[in-house]
């Protein structure tokens, strides 16, 4: 059965691993960028590679689901070959489990290898991540370009071991769609849509709750304020401070002495006007001291940078569990629902 799986899959496997080899070679040849050592800007080529790496690691599981998962059963049903192969001396269950195991292994390995390469290459950039703060007039330019923390929603899914879980899940999702819809093209479309929806939903609805978040209440100062938004009627819209370096900030709220979430008084807006908008002082420490004196503090809810691998492990396990569950359902459906 492994032989048949391999025989039917080898061309696609060769194509996919060929592309993967090209991608890894490109990263190796380009070498790791080294920001922070006096470099203020990243070379354009490195910038492209940085973005392309994220896109590639996100795309690979989706492609595995669409092109390997969805046609796995539906193509057999469309061409009628299931009637040939299911009447040999091998049960449908063994047929399906072998196929899912072999191709699933190929998909997860590819995702793992690509993620490993991209994570290695982007390592220095991820390490150079610092929180953005409002820069007072006259302050020196930062010594390095700042990048999103690797624990932040977008980057997290393109680093570490999570892509392996994504690939396993997307692949089995494709198989399940193929079994339920019985037609390849609709199954591919549904796989893509559902997987994309899951990729969007998980960082916002699921990942924050995978582990209890840390909380910290800080005094708002000129040094840590990162956002100050004012609308046309001079009302304060937004106030945020920078979290710890490399952390994923989930909530950034102003609280009063009693710990209630409140809006900061609107005059705070004048404490740090961007230069050129007003004649007022651009960095008024006294202004912030007055705010602190009134009992206003900023409360941060966040996952610290050090929780990266814990979250990676939990999310990977979650997706692998989902994949296993879906596989079990696929086996059941193949036995009972298919002709």
């Amino acid at each position: 059965m492994i032989w048949l799986t391999w025989r039917q899959f080898r061309v696609q496997a060769a194509a996919a691993y060929g592309l993967l080899a090209v991608a890894v070679a490109a990263l190796l040849v380009a070498g790791r960028p080294l920001p922070g050592s006096g470099v203020t800007r990243l070379a354009p080529a490195d910038g492209t590679l940085y973005s392309a790496g994220i896109v590639a690691v996100y795309a690979l599981p989706a492609l595995a689901g669409v092109f390997w998962g969805a046609p796995l059963v539906s193509r057999e049903l469309e061409t009628g070959t299931h009637r040939l192969v299911w009447n040999q001396g091998v049960t449908r269950t063994r047929w399906l489990v072998t196929k899912v195991a072999v191709i699933g292994l190929a998909a997860t390995s590819a995702a793992g290898l690509l993620s490993l390469a991209v994570t290695w290459w982007a390592g220095p950039l991820d390490a150079a991540s610092r929180p953005d703060t409002i820069r007072p007039v006259g302050a020196a330019m930062p010594d390095a370009v700042s990048f999103a923390a690797r624990i932040s929603p977008l980057v997290f899914g393109a680093r570490g071991i999570v892509p392996v879980g994504h690939a396993a899940f997307a692949f089995v999702l494709g198989v399940a769609a193929g079994i339920l819809l019985r037609r390849t093209v609709p199954a591919m479309a549904v796989t893509l849509v559902v997987f994309a929806a899951v990729q969007v939903a998980v960082p916002f609805a699921v990942r924050p709750h995978l582990a209890p978040a840390d909380r910290q209440t800080v005094t708002i100062t000129m040094a840590n304020i990162s956002k100050l938004g004012v609308n046309g009627t001079e009302r304060l819209e937004e106030l945020a401070v920078a979290g710890p370096p490399g952390a994923w900030v989930l909530a950034n709220e102003t609280v009063d002495t009693a710990g209630r979430v409140v809006a900061a008084p609107s005059w705070v807006a004048d404490c740090a006007r961007p230069p050129g908008q007003a004649a007022l002082p651009t960095a008024d420490e006294a202004c912030f001291a007055r705010l602190a004196g009134l009992g206003y503090r900023q409360r941060l809810t966040y996952h610290p940078a050090g929780r990266f691998w814990a979250l990676q492990g939990i999310e990977t396990a979650l997706f692998l569990t989902l994949a296993a569950l879906l596989t079990w359902l696929c086996v059941r459906w193949t036995r009972t629902r298919l002709p």
Binding site: Q8, T79, G80, T81, R83, L84, N87, G89, V90
Partner: peptide, 17 residues
């Protein structure tokens, strides 16, 4: 598998890969 081995089936339109 034992039952599958006992019965051969050549389906309509004789599908092959």
């Amino acid at each position: 598998p034992a039952q599958l081995a006992k019965v051969g089936f050549v389906a309509q339109d004789t599908p092959v890969y």
